[in-house]
């Protein structure tokens, strides 16, 4: 394709091609400092292209194609090309990844140990991870955590954080302007702005961590910590994984291993600051 970019996020290499220069230029800016795939060989290909040839110029809209596709994925406005690229990369991971058990979860690391946060969209796991990433933790990823079936280690996937609506202003208080992408107004998900993780998170994207705590955060409720039994944790994590079934026995072994070895609980919090303090408390109590 005419415009293209290859990059590596955590252990996964991507090649993104576009019929228009805009999305690639925006990606280049946002992903400045990310390495390319090993030997230039990408794991996944994403194509941003017009659905019909004439739609390249006339009311251009970006269809998200690639190695793995959803037949009914709606195209996006060209102005939202960055979001299209993000969705295209997510889609490859969700539909195509086999090397790791993919958990729809955010993760941060401290002292070689990982905190994994998962829950339904809107539960705040993404914003919480991004904020922790500015406050003494290494951001491993805001969307996906990759569990290695062979070692049980968690691998980072530190893509650009996708901030939505009120989370944008919240993060702007902690983060310098030059790490933000352009503001995308009126996307199907509302207002979106991408945030490049801190340089250390990118530099250490090949370093895995040992899972130490699993949290199921829930935003907008009074502060509470609720225990969850391991069988429920297991079932919830199968639901949070896009490739649990396709990994077969390896997925079963990896996930039961994770659940047996890792404490877990649900936390409710009224705002993100309360969540940060809850997390620090739980983390400090882990060893006691």
């Amino acid at each position: 394709m005419r415009y293209r970019l290859s990059l590596k996020v955590g252990p996964i290499g991507f090649r993104i091609g576009s019929a228009w220069p805009g999305p690639i230029a925006a990606l280049r800016g946002l992903y400045a400092g990310y390495p390319g795939p090993d030997d230039g060989i990408a794991d996944f290909t994403v194509r941003l292209e017009p659905e019909r040839p004439w739609r390249r110029w006339l009311r251009p809209s970006v269809a998200i194609h690639g190695d793995h596709m959803l037949p009914d994925a709606a195209p996006l406005a060209l102005a939202h090309g960055l979001l299209a690229a993000e969705m295209g990369m997510n889609l490859q991971m969700a539909l195509g990844l086999r090397r790791y058990l993919l958990l729809h979860a955010s993760a941060v690391e401290r002292d070689g140990r990982a905190l994994v946060m998962t829950g339904e969209s809107g539960a705040g796991k993404s914003t919480l991870a991004a904020l922790l990433g500015e406050r003494g933790w290494r951001l491993m990823g805001d969307e996906f955590a990759l569990l290695d079936p062979a070692s049980g280690a968690l691998h980072p996937f530190p893509r650009a954080v996708s901030l939505k609506n009120s989370a944008i202003a919240l993060m702007a208080a902690d983060v310098p302007e030059d790490r933000f992408g352009p503001v995308l107004e009126d996307t199907p998900k509302g207002r979106i702005r991408h945030l490049r993780p801190r340089a250390d998170a990118i530099a250490r994207m090949a370093d895995p961590a040992t899972p130490a705590l699993i949290l199921f955060p829930r935003y907008g409720h009074a502060r509470a910590i609720r225990p969850i039994g391991p069988a429920e944790v297991f079932v919830r994590l199968t639901q949070a994984s896009t490739n649990y079934v396709s990994l077969g026995e390896a997925g079963f072994r990896a996930l039961t291993g994770l659940v047996a070895a890792t404490p877990a609980c649900a936390i409710d919090y009224p705002d993100t600051e309360a969540a940060v303090s809850l997390v620090e408390t739980l983390w400090a109590n882990l060893d006691s």
Binding site: P230, A231, F234, T256
Partner: peptide, 8 residues
């Protein structure tokens, strides 16, 4: 695998 009274 046994997990708190349930069997996976």
């Amino acid at each position: 695998i046994e997990l708190e009274g349930l069997t996976l």
